[in-house]
Design a protein around this nucleic acid. Sequence first.
DNA 1: TCGACTGGCGCC
DNA 2: AAAGGGCGCCAGTCGA
Length: 565
Amino acid sequence: MAPAPRTALVPDPHGPGGRLQPLAEDGNPLGPPVRTPDLAAAVAEREAAEQPRWVWAAADSAYAPLLPLRLARCHDLRLTEALLLGHDGAWGAPRSLGAAWARLRGLPVPADLPESAGPDDQDGLFAPDRLQLPPGTDPLAAVVAVHAEQQRRTGSIADPATRARFRLLVAAESAGGLLAAEMSHDGLPWRADIHDRLLTELLGPRPTVPGTHPSRLAELAVELQQALGGRPFNPDSHSQVLRAFAEQGIQLGSTRSWELNRVDHPAARLMTRYKELSRLHAAHGWAWQDAWARGGRFRPEYVVGGVVSGRWASRGGGALQIPRILRRAVVADPGWTLVVADAAQLEPRVLAALSQDAGLARSAAEGDLYSALAATAFHGDRDKAKLGLLGAMYGQTSGDIGPLLATLRRRYPTAMGYVEAAARTGEDGGIVRSRLGRTCPPPSADWLDLTEAPESATEAGGRSARARGRFTRNFVIQASGADWALALLAALRRRLTALESGADRPHLVFFQHDEVVVHTPLNLADQVAAAVADAAEEARTLVFGDTPVRFPLSATIADCYADAK
DNA sequence: TCGACTGGCGCC
DNA sequence: AAAGGGCGCCAGTCGA
């Protein structure tokens, strides 16, 4: 396939205009800059004509103002800069356009600006000075130059296969930038009335005085007090809770729920319940709804590559930590429905594909991986198979997991050797990369905090080395899983663009590590489900090439998120 | 009074 | 003896 033509795009700092410039694959200009008074119209026209790969500083400054216009592909300089910095051993250096430009020109490199926060702080995102360019610098010239440099650096990766995978990573990460902007713009359908009903059922009516506890929480606090001797205390204060339990002769090391659950006392159950409800109220209660879920849509801000492993993070609204119970409030619009798909057992499948362990790959070739593993190596005990494999991927050594790991080591030496090699690399201070070439951060002072350690420096050093070993062990899997998920998103997004129903089109409205939700006109739901399956297969081939491992994505059609699967 | 930190728990 | 990876967010706590 011939590479797409490229076009640099820079919006004017104020107003609807902007400038465009055609570029060759290597970043060299193919013509002079073109100024347009109506950037959205000019971009739409060129997109219809040739679907170029749009080259811009960052989606939030260049793409968000163009929405709801949909563009097929882009090269996001900020996201790519972060990938390249990590790859080149400069992990964490500033990645703004201005920073990349400064490095190119040997100028002082500006630090990245703090990100915006809060649902009402959208304006700061579009301010042109976020590009961090020195005064008087032409932003278009900077975009063109930094892009050319990024293409050069990517092209200098020696191994052709590694280079090709890194290019795929750049394209997929950039597509993630497109999608994140679109999902924030479209929002996740959110029924405030259902949310409110759930809250009222669990917590009592919404308090009329802001900042006060809803009735059920207040009642629980009183019941707790009575169960613990009647002395008033604040159930939100750990130290007061510990003291109140201690006065009843119950010594707790913490107020963690698993510890409370082991205590046979009425107050322990009340405390657990209080904490559950209190958390729901504080994190996803009425205040959250007011802030994040107005107008029938939940509009979080997604942070592409916000996690070192390449997983997305979110800013504000806790988009990736919505309690399962609140999925009840995610309901398709009338005439629309949801297609919900999640990858089953993504990480063990990633391990099988990465390590090319023939035995594990057989277990991952279809169906339930843990059952297949159990049948082969654990006398049919699925729980043991799952526990053992998860422990191997996380570097767990506690509990009764030793024998399970020994079994896995015997039966799947290649797979276990793979994660153990990654762990050793980390322990020795080395770096590891995902399948597509995302690099883990190097060791830092965080890994070797000797100040508080009561034991010797040697012991503390060993402990921190093992901690970093667990990190790199998990990184290769989690990050390669994120590679796959990004490829899936890009492939699915492309397929969805091709589906239409009158003026309506299905669109991705949610993505959470290994799960996607598409909001679609009813009559397209089956085609969306098929597109999901096709996209999963495409991602598998793109990321892992020739592997017997399958990455099944079970798609369910349901009007309500809570009813899926 | 405010920022940094901690404990704890939501999600994967 | 302790012994599981990655996040974001809240209330409480503590110190500047």
